[in-house]
Structure formats: C-alpha cells, structure tokens
Design a protein around this nucleic acid. Structure first.
Lengths: 205, 205
DNA sequence: TCCTCGACTGACCGCGCGTTCAGCGCGGTG
DNA sequence: CACCGCGCTGAACGCGCGGTCAGTCGAGGA
C-alpha cells in the first residue's frame, strides 16, 4: 500500500502541528500553551488543528506519545545492548543526556506530564495514558537490575526502588545542565553519575 | 507588644486560607486550583481572600513560603546536627521522608513550583521567589559535602552535582511512597537511600 | 435603644480560553 | 470556461476564571 498524496499532506500537517505543540508547551508550560499560539507556531489557523485532533486533550496526548517514543527507543536500545551492566548503564545515561541536549525544550513537557494537572477527569486520563509509559521504563530498568543482581554484578536490593533512583539521578543532572550556560562535556557528567551510582560517594575506611 | 484581638483574628484567617490553598493546590494542581474552591475549602467567601492577599499570585507565594519553611527548618536542623556525615545524611533523609509522610498533599505543590508555569512574567516572578529557596537548599548541602570531602569522609567530586543527586534520590523515593498503598517503614527506605548513596550499587570485584 | 463602623459577602464584570461553523478560494473535472 | 468539492480559515460563541464593590449584619460604644 503506497501513500496517496492526501496521506502525505495529512502526515505533514499532523507532524507540523505536533512539533509546534512541543515547542509552545516547552516554552510556556502545559497550562498556558494556547491553541492559538500552537496554531501560529505551526503556521495554520486555529480551526485547522481541529481537523486533525478531536480536541486539545487529544493533541497533547498524541504529541507526547510521539515525542517520548523517540527517547524511550534510544534508552531501551542502550539498555538492551551487549556488555556488562556497567557498560549498559553508561550507554543508557549517555543516551538520555544526549537526547535532552538535542531536545532541550522537550524537557519541560516531559516533566509536566509526570505530575498531572487539571480537573479530576483530565488527571485520570493523563494518568492512564502517561503513567504506563513511565511505569514501563521503570520496570524495564528494574528487570535489567534484577538480572544484574542474579549475575552477581549488583548488590541485592529492591530493584524497583533502585530503578527509580537511577532514573532520577540522571534527571537531576539533566535539569542542572539545562540551567547552566556552558555545561561540562556530557561524558564528564555521565562518568560522575555512573561512578556515584556504582561505587557510592563514601571513602571506605 | 501583645497581640490585640484583631491581630489574632487576622492571623487565624490568614492561616485558614493558606491551609485551604495548600489542600486545594495539592489536590487539583497549581493551574486548576480556583479562588472559588480555595474560599469554599477555607469556609469564607471569595472576596474575603482579597482582604488578606492582594491577588492570587501573592496568596500562592506567601503560602508556599510558609509551608516550605517548615520542611527546610527540619532538614537544615538534621544537616547541622552533630555526628559523622553518614549520621547527618541519615537524619536528613529521615526528616524529609517523615515530613512528606505527614504532609502527603503538600508534595505536589512542592513539585509544581520547581517547574514554573504561566505567562513569562509569572514565570519570572515565580523563579525569583522560589528558585532561591531550592538553590539555598542545594548550596547548604553542597557546603556540607565539601566539608565532608575535606575531612576525608567523602570522595572528592563536584559538590553541587552531588548535592542535586542526594536531594533527587530521596525525592524519587518519596514520590514512590506516595503512590504506594502501604509503603514500607520509613527506616527501610532511609537505609536503602543512605546505603546506595554511600556505597553504591555495585558488588566490588 | 439606636447608631456607627468595618469585616465579610457574593452577584457581577471583563477577559481570554477552547471550540465551532459558515464561508472562502483553489485545484481538479467535464 | 463553469462548476464542484474540500481543505482551510478566523470571527464569533459560551464558559469559567480572577478580580471588584455595593450591600449586609452584628458587635460595641454613646
């Protein structure tokens, strides 16, 4: 089945609008990003958006799914690559830092979705759609940690909690890097994170 | 100078409204917490709020300052107590977990303020008022880490980045605990955090 | 008892948002 | 060339918000 002209146009419009949505939401935050501004950013009229998305909610939801897919694809590839757990942890951290370095504006959207806002029904919907994505990430990492524990590479601790700690540690550094004028080379921060996580901060007595 | 009756009433009103604001913002999120609902929660009319706070912005700002003050007071006390760095780290983590366990609803407000929303001017204002508080926390901890490094208790690494990692690690666990029906005892999680941070997750070869 | 004062109220206002839809213009067709 | 269909437009609508202010009412003084 080859793509018809209409399909190509449709795909292009959807993509333009989603990219505009990411830019505006990243700039203004989820709550203050208006349909008007997203439309202007995409170079279409406000009404046009409603030809491709039922309402604001669907636009945000689909946009987020598309955008986060790219990040998770890269991180999962690193997690499932060959090598010791240390090597994979390093690759994963590198992938995350590199992604947010190239998509600095996406970070705010990513963060906003973790803490749902809005009416109760909006919150429930956002939770149903987004939490599984975060949850899935945590559980993949937890699985990898469990395997590393069984292989004797990692101390036997609660895998889920460790996964959360690993993820949030790199998130903290990404956030700091975004606030810095000239962040240090990515590899420096990757080393700091990996070294801290693996060996801890204490000097053994 | 003793308090007059009017002062007592005034203080009571301000406190009621602020407590209501915390509850509503925690429930609905910063963006969807309306003045109407805050007024209802406080048991006053909407107009009454404007007798004690200039506008919505000032209410949120003052409320946050009051609320976060309590948390930071407790954490700083733990940080400045006597003992080894490990003991103080343990005390600090314990204080944080205990605080959010007793003020579960406050956590969302705390998180929302980290990532400012709203118009550009609102964002700037929120940044000027709230970032210093977070910044101060990071720098206090960074100072303590530096001292511990000089004392040979901690490996010589970038203190500021380490401080961020320590803070976010416990934040990650707090968030998970809030989502859990029956979280494990606080002390278990404190031990996990402290142990992971100090010794790392790897099994030395 | 009546008057005064000011804390408190809540209907009301203007604004800005998401959403709609009547109409416009353009590429394709006979 | 006349006609049609359809993707697109943006003025207009309703709604719900933050903020206002004329009016209410009960405590306290004369």
């Amino acid at each position: 089945m080859i793509k018809s002209k209409e399909d190509i146009v449709q795909e292009f419009r959807v993509q333009s609008i989603q990219e505009a949505a990411i830019r505006v939401i990243s700039r203004k935050g989820m709550a203050s990003a208006t349909m008007q501004e997203i439309a202007e950013e995409a170079g279409v009229a406000k009404g046009t958006i409603y030809l491709y998305f039922r309402d604001r909610e669907e636009l945000v939801e689909k946009t987020f799914e598309t955008a986060i897919g790219e990040l998770h694809k890269q991180v999962d590839a690193a997690l499932e690559s060959e090598g010791s757990f240390e090597q994979r942890l390093r690759a994963m951290t590198m992938a995350k830092l590199a992604f947010f370095n190239q998509n600095r504006e996406f970070f705010r959207l990513y963060h906003t979705l973790k803490m749902p806002e809005g009416s109760a029904s909006q919150q429930r919907r956002q939770k149903r759609n987004c939490q599984p994505q975060f949850q899935a990430r945590v559980e993949r990492l937890a699985g990898a940690l469990k395997a590393a524990m069984d292989a004797g590479e990692v101390r036997p601790l609660d895998p889920k909690r460790l996964a959360l700690i690993l993820i949030e540690t790199s998130t903290a550094i990404v956030l700091e890097r975004l606030n810095e004028e000239t962040p240090p080379p990515e590899s420096d921060d990757v080393e700091l994170i990996v070294s801290t996580l693996l060996s801890g901060i204490a000097i053994p007595k």
